[in-house]
Design a binder for these strands. Structure first.
Lengths: 252, 252
DNA sequence: TGAGCCTAAATTGTATACAATCGCGTGAAG
DNA sequence: CTTCACGCGATTGTATACAATTTAGGCTCA
C-alpha cells in the first residue's frame, strides 16, 4: 500500500531500506541509526527520517524510547499469526461480499479470474506458469476484497499484507518440488472455486469459513517450507527466508 | 498506540493536530498544508511533517498525489465497517485465547475485571460510574487481547482502534438517556461474562461468535446515537460526532 | 573494589535556507 | 473565441547547520 510517497529521494530511501532489511543486511534487533543509513545510501537525513518512520508503521522497524529504531524481529509464531489474521480478514471480506449481494457483472470479473486460474493449474509447472499463477492469485484476492465494498477492510488488510510473509503469494515461490507444488496449487484453486460459489449463492458463513481455510493452506505450506529451509540453511526461526520470496512477489 | 514519538515538538504537533482534526477545525476533505499548520502551531516544518505522516498512517489524513494531505472523510458505512472489523479481530482474539488455553492465573485477571464490571453496572448511572465502566471495559478488552498471546493481532487491532469511533468505548458517552444506558451496559456486561465463560471452557467458536456480537452491540448503539444526533444537530454523516467522545475516552 | 557522578562524544530532534515541483492565471496566436 | 504555452506564485521536497538529549567511559571518592 505504500501510501503515496511522492518524491524521488524519499521513495528511493524507502525501497532501498526495505530491500536491505528483507535481504537481512541488518541483524534482527540491530539498532539502525540514521547516520549509518545516510552514509550507505548517500541521501540526506530528512528523507531517510521519513522512510524510517514509514517503515516503523509498516512493521519492519520498532521505535525505541529515547530515539532510534531497531529492526523488528518476527518469531515463527508471529509469521503464522500474521497469516491467520489475513485469513480472518479475508474471511470477513468474503462474508461481506456474499452478504452485500454483488451484481452479476461484479461477480463475473472474479469468475473470469477463477477460470483463468483453472487453466493455469492444469499446465506443467514452470517459472512462467508459476508467475502467471501468482499474478492471477493476487488478482483474485484483490477482486474478492473489492467485492466486500469496504475501504476500511481494505485498509486493515493492507496493514497486514505490508508484511511480505503474510501476502497471499508468500508461499508460492518457496521450498517445494514441482509435483508437490502442482498439487498444492490445484487444491488452492479448488478452494477459490468454492469461495466464488459461496459468494454467488449469498452463503456468507460458508464463504468466510472457506476463505479462512484457504489462508490456512498457505500457513501450513509456509510452516512446511520453513521446516525444510531450517534444516537446509540452519537459519532457525529467522523470518528472512520468507522475506526472500517477498520483494519479487508483486501483489500490487 | 502512538508508537513512541519521542520528542517534545513532534508529540506536541501530533496531539494538537489530532485534537484539531477531531474537533472539526478542518473541513473534511479540506487540503491541509504544512505552512498553514506551521503558522497555527508555531512549530517548524520538520516535526509538523513527521506528525502529518503519522496521522496519515493512523488514517486521519490522506496523502495526495503531487504532495500535500487532505482530511480523510469517513462515511457512515466506514464507521460501521470499522466497528465490524474490530469485532472480527477481537473475535479472533477470543478464539485464540480459548484455543491457546490460558492458565488459571491469566484467566483470573479477566475474571476479576468482569466481577468489578458486574458491580459497576448495578450502580446508578452517573458520570463517575460511567467513567469507571469505561475504564474497566477498556481493561477487559485489553486483557482479552493479551490472552490471545498474539503480538500480531494486537498490532492489527491497534491500527483499527486508532480511529476513535472504532474503540470499544466509543459508544459509551454518546446519545443515550441514563436508563437506556444502564440497560445497554447491563446487556454488554452479560456478554462479557459469557465471553469469559467460553474462553474458560476452551470453546473457541462460541467465544468468537459472542465477541463479534458484542461489537455488534456497540455498532447498533452507535448507529442509533448517530441517527439521533443527525436529527438534532443536522450533521449528517459526519464522523465528527463520534470523534467528539474520542479524546477523553481513555482506553488504557 | 565498587558505586556514582561528571564530562565528552555520538546521535537524534529542530529549524531554516534552498531547490524542485505543481498549479493556475494570463497572454498571445490560430 | 478557444486553446496552448509560458511564467510566476505557492507549496512541497531536500540538505544542512545547530540544539538538545542520550550514552558510554573514566575518574574520583567512599
Amino acid at each position: 500500500m505504500t501510501l503515496a510517497p511522492r518524491s524521488k529521494q524519499q521513495i528511493h530511501a524507502l525501497m532501498k531500506l526495505r530491500e536491505m532489511i528483507l535481504a537481512g543486511e541488518f541483524a534482527p534487533g540491530e539498532r539502525v541509526s540514521e547516520l549509518a543509513v545516510v552514509e550507505k545510501l548517500g541521501i540526506s537525513r530528512t528523507p531517510v527520517r521519513l522512510a524510517l518512520n514509514i517503515l516503523q508503521h509498516e512493521g519492519f522497524l520498532q521505535g525505541q524510547t529515547g530515539g532510534g529504531y531497531r529492526v523488528r524481529e518476527f518469531s515463527q509464531q508471529d509469521v503464522l499469526d500474521a497469516i491467520e489474521i489475513r485469513g480472518v480478514l479475508e474471511g470477513a471480506a468474503a462474508r461481506l461480499a456474499a452478504e452485500r449481494r454483488p451484481s452479476e457483472e461484479e461477480l463475473d470479473a472474479l469468475r473470469q479470474t477463477c477460470r483463468e486460474l483453472d487453466t493455469v493449474v492444469k499446465q506443467d509447472m514452470s517459472p512462467d506458469v508459476l508467475q502467471r499463477y501468482s499474478d492471477l492469485n493476487g488478482q483474485f484476492h484483490d477482486q474478492l476484497l473489492a467485492l466486500s465494498r469496504s475501504p476500511m477492510l481494505a485498509r486493515s488488510l493492507s496493514h497486514v499484507e505490508a508484511l511480505p510473509f503474510a501476502s497471499p503469494n508468500a508461499f508460492v515461490f518457496v521450498g517445494f518440488a514441482d509435483n508437490e507444488r502442482s498439487d498444492i496449487l490445484k487444491f488452492a484453486q479448488h478452494q477459490h472455486a468454492d469461495i466464488v460459489e459461496a459468494i454467488s449463492l449469498g452463503e456468507g458463513g460458508r464463504a468466510e469459513a472457506l476463505t479462512r481455510e484457504h489462508a490456512r493452506l498457505a500457513r501450513r505450506n509456509l510452516a512446511t517450507a520453513q521446516q525444510r529451509v531450517d534444516l537446509l540453511k540452519e537459519v532457525p526461526g529467522s523470518f528472512l527466508f520468507a522475506a526472500d520470496a517477498g520483494p519479487e512477489e508483486g501483489r500490487d
